[in-house]
Design a binder for these strands. Structure first.
Length: 463
RNA sequence: GGCGACGUGGCCGAGUGGUUAGGCGCGGGUCUGCAAAACCCGUCACACCGGUUCGAUUCCGGUCGUCGCCUCCA
């Protein structure tokens, strides 16, 4: 029985989907205003693993992740880059897609864009006005927070205690400082759409409510996003969706923890961030994926280059075992254990621990000449559900072998030359010319290539 | 100020009322021509102060500290 932590329940609760055997998931995707950073990767990976586990454990999953392609920040970024909002949004959407792919994040079943859903958004706003929960004002439309009795139930905030009034700009047409915009009147030079309230564009919260309703209906199973979205974004989504329909919006709210850098939250706005593409290119997506899965998805996690390097080493250990073992039918005991830790709020740290336990057991048995098909099979299963294989490897850089090839009568610095050098070293060792053999090994080591001698010959890997 | 999370060994990071997390690093050993890899052994852990208990790192209370949200944010 799957149990998961729901922010709304504030506890780990049994998971009971709306429809038996099916799971409908909506995860807040990016606002495509700039390049993705590690924090975006963490959220994507957290919910990707949740999705993969649910699929693997026999659920039919519908996974929706939106793209917010109209927003104040995008408009500002487009103005600064001297290009249209559409072009900038599309350019960044492509960057996000590349980042997700490098991390092995499965493409969503549906990836709706805000700008493709203006009619749905307008309809929802209209319903809110009809129900007395929203009001037009000077071309804007606002949600009336005071009219919503249950407002604050997700974030635990009491409207009377919110200090929102402090920073309200004078020109805003709100009746109450707590109210938030559903529709914003068009300003000169900005994209706009027609509406019953005049030309304008949607507010930031309403798109998710409208798109989730369209593709997943009401009372769907899981809504995900970062903890930084709990308030106000998800609180407002609940207010809008339940206000417009009078029915429950979402059954379980899941939130991933933030990625910190030097103890501070990674964020575009503060400039405290590490660009995702720079990491995936140089180190591959797998190492970062493993790094992130070693912590529970709800915990804050620290990022540093040292920690990434550590994960790379751990990944090497895993890969070496997988190369020397032939997988067969997975060991049922290991699979049960895996299921157990994952059913407990998606315990990937324990799953990773289990993975390395299997690696050690497997290596030991291989050393003793035993059979490890079932262990290797379990490893493959876990690797698959964690999505480690689908993440990218580092981009192969050219090697700098120096004068090593020429010293042994070879040319070039490609991988074929490395293969030839390894062969020459084997000959030298057979002839007990260890000076030559060690010269090749040391030279390769200097170029970042490590040799490992095994019973089936020598293999090399880049370090 | 309000809401919430958290303080674990050299570092990261799980977990538990009394018994091995795991990874990385470090020390020793086996193997190896020497290494690397692999395996084995080891490496004074649970912020502080009270309380409950036969027994607490694990439960309760307090203190100190860190982080997130309260404004756009994964």
């Amino acid at each position: 029985m799957l149990r998961l932590y729901s922010t709304l329940h504030r506890a780990i609760v049994p998971f009971e989907p709306r429809d038996e055997g099916k799971v409908a998931i909506y995860v807040c995707g990016p606002t495509v205003q700039s390049e993705p950073h590690v924090g975006h990767g963490r959220s994507a990976i957290a919910f990707d693993v949740i999705r993969r586990y649910l699929m693997w454990s026999g659920h039919e999953v519908t996974y929706v992740r939106n793209v917010t392609d109209i927003e104040d920040k995008i408009i500002a970024a487009a103005a600064e880059a001297d290009e249209s909002v559409e072009v900038l949004a599309e350019r960044m959407a492509v960057r996000f897609a590349a980042g997700y792919e490098a991390l092995g994040v499965l493409p969503p079943d549906l990836e709706p864009k805000a700008t493709d859903h203006i009619p749905e958004i307008v309809d929802m706003i209209r319903s809110l006005i009809e129900r007395g929960l929203a009001y037009p004002s000077e071309g804007d439309v606002y949600f009336s927070v005071r009219a919503d009795e249950s407002y604050g139930k997700l974030s635990g905030r009491n409207p009377d205690e919110l200090r929102s009034g402090v920073r309200i700009e004078v020109e805003e047409a709100k009746h109450d400082p707590l109210d938030f915009a559903l529709w914003k009147a068009a300003r000169p030079g900005e994209p706009w759409w027609d509406s019953p309230w005049g030309p304008g564009r949607p507010g930031w919260h309403i798109e998710c409510s409208a798109m989730a309703a369209k593709y997943l209906g009401q009372d769907f199973d899981i809504h995900g996003g970062g903890t930084d979205l709990i308030f106000p974004h998800h609180e407002n989504e609940i207010a809008q969706s339940e206000g417009a329909t009078g029915t429950s919006f979402v059954r379980y709210w899941l939130h991933n923890g933030m990625v910190n850098l030097g103890g501070e939250k990674m964020a575009k706005s503060t400039g405290v961030l590490v660009d995702l593409a720079s990491i995936t290119q140089k180190h591959g997506g797998r190492a970062l994926r493993l790094l992130l899965l070693r912590a529970h998805y709800r915990s804050p996690i620290e990022y540093s280059d040292e920690l990434l390097a550590e994960s790379e080493d751990a990944l090497d250990r895993l890969q070496r075992f997988r190369e020397r073992a032939t997988p067969g039918e997975p060991d049922p005991e290991a699979i049960n254990r895996f299921r157990e830790v994952m059913e407990d709020d998606f315990g990937t740290p324990l799953a990773v621990s289990l993975l390395f336990d299997l690696v050690r057991d497997g290596n030991r048995q291989l050393d003793e000449g035993g059979d490890v098909e079932s262990i290797a099979g379990a490893v493959e299963t876990i690797v698959g559900v964690l999505g480690l294989d689908d993440a990218s490897l580092p981009v192969e850089e050219t090697l700098d072998l120096g004068d090593l090839p020429s010293r042994f009568g070879l040319e070039g610095d490609g991988h074929d030359v490395v293969d030839r050098l390894v062969e020459l070293r084997a000959v030298a060792r057979d002839e007990r010319r260890f000076d030559d053999a060690d010269a090749i090994r040391d030279g390769l080591e200097k170029a970042g290539v490590t040799l490992e001698d095994g019973p089936d010959g020598t293999r090399w890997l880049r370090k």
